[in-house]
Design a protein around this nucleic acid. Structure first.
Lengths: 256, 256
DNA sequence: ACAAAAGTGTTACTAATACACCCATGC
DNA sequence: GCATGGGTGTATTAGTAACACTTTTGT
């Protein structure tokens, strides 16, 4: 519209990155974790904050979010969706005005556990966050709400898993995100009747009980309904996953 | 973060404004209508487009959306919510990059029908839109999807109505938005059991049938859940409604 | 009395839940 | 055999949809 009108605010893109961890720390139970970066400049110097940075010219918003994610974790997102744009005039006290377009992303558990926790990057449990800079605490809570809400009516859980998985693993993802146990029998029926997964015919052996079926996702069904918005595939182009292993490197083995 | 880094894109705020109309044109049936403005500059000169404009410094995003709404219709929003931020690098062919933060809003039917349709402003049925500039067609469809989706699990319908209303009027709103008839009996039960409305004890007379109860909304229940985001009241400060009458000025009258 | 919409009652169907119970493997 | 989780069956419940029916006004 205008020829060279001065911009009214700085434009930044931040990303809330979710992964699942089942460390010894978490007592074997899977939990939602997320990476934060330590600020090395004022304001909020030394505080933890969401990964992000200024939007570059000629860079799509989703691409900027994925780049941020890659810089922080060395990973590519399995799922990426815009969350909200925060742009109140007085977000940062006394500082230049910044409008933040925030995305949220899911990364695979296998990759996440092998991911580098580079300099000034720390992983935290979503239930036990440190003090966060700016309004990032609110943003993370909103992202968590969206994750939990969307998990109930959508099919984003598989973003945490490998190509093949058991229903118990899928259920574990749901339980970790929702924070409550689910009935295995009803969960099975719900998932199977939704058509979201198909049995591969193979079984996972090496457990000390009956071998569970291995499933894979039904590609013909969309991950999540974003309404009439064009399906934005996460921009995988910029960096490939470090670990190409699609599922946990455990002593477990597969056979038909 | 940066001292005086050049901004990477222009920042604009647009608003999709919804109102309900039951003209002679629509055959007595209420329909969703929205105002558009005709572009007077290239690109897309002469085309219809969403109301909007550049974000001003020291102006909150929601305030900018409400200001846009007031400039276009002379009204204040009854409901206002952020929709999405469109910022692909190549939205406008050959032009300067523009990142659009889009809001969607509801205005009361009574006010909307009395609203000024100022110069270069036109109202259109949501089901019969003209050619739109940029990617605004997609944006409107997304906003419509959100309106319809949210109507089913939230309580935004009353934004179209006055302070007091009959259940038939409320049902008419739902039917207009969803585009399909609803069973009056079941609708009544659903709404009443949700606790969203309370009977005033008064009845609407002047109809040629049994006088229906007048209800009002239960203020103790939130309009719509916007997640853990702080409830953003629509910024009413900038301009007041023209018509202070809260419901349609028809020959109908109220009495207890 | 009749039309028309308000409002009530009833039934059928579907989806969610709780939980009992059998199955197949490792030890 | 026994423990363990995989997997199946089933009864109960809650919510939704369809529709018959009664009520109260204006004409």
């Amino acid at each position: 519209m205008a020829e060279h009108e001065r911009a009214s605010a700085m434009l930044a893109v931040s990303t809330v990155i979710f992964a699942l961890r089942s460390d010894e720390l978490t007592g074997g139970r899977a939990q939602v974790w997320l990476p934060l970066v330590r600020r090395i400049r004022a304001p909020f110097e030394g505080c933890w904050a969401l990964p992000g940075g200024p939007l570059r010219v000629d860079e799509d918003l989703a691409y900027a979010a994925a780049r941020t994610l890659a810089d922080t974790t060395g990973l590519a997102p399995r799922y990426l969706e815009q969350l909200y744009t925060f742009g109140d005039a007085v977000r940062s006290p006394g500082d230049e005005r910044v409008v933040s377009i925030v995305y949220w992303a899911l990364v695979g558990s296998a990759e996440a556990e092998a991911a580098t926790a580079g300099e000034n990057v720390g992983w935290f449990s979503a239930d036990d966050l440190p003090e966060l800079a700016f309004d990032h605490k609110l943003i993370v809570e909103y992202a968590l709400w969206r994750l939990r809400t969307k998990m109930e009516y959508s099919r984003i859980a598989h973003a945490f898993l490998g190509e093949r998985f058991t229903l118990a693993q899928l259920r574990e993802v749901h339980e970790a995100v929702l924070g409550r146990p689910l009935d295995p029998a009803n969960f099975r029926r719900t998932i199977e009747s939704s058509g979201a997964v198909v049995a591969t015919g193979d079984y996972l052996t090496g457990t000390r009980h009956r071998p569970p079926r291995l499933y894979r996702y039904n590609d013909s069904i969309d991950l999540a309904d974003a309404g009439p918005l064009p399906r934005q595939q996460p921009p995988f182009g910029l960096r490939q996953n470090r670990s190409t292993a699609e599922h946990r490197p455990t002593p477990e083995s597969e056979q038909s």
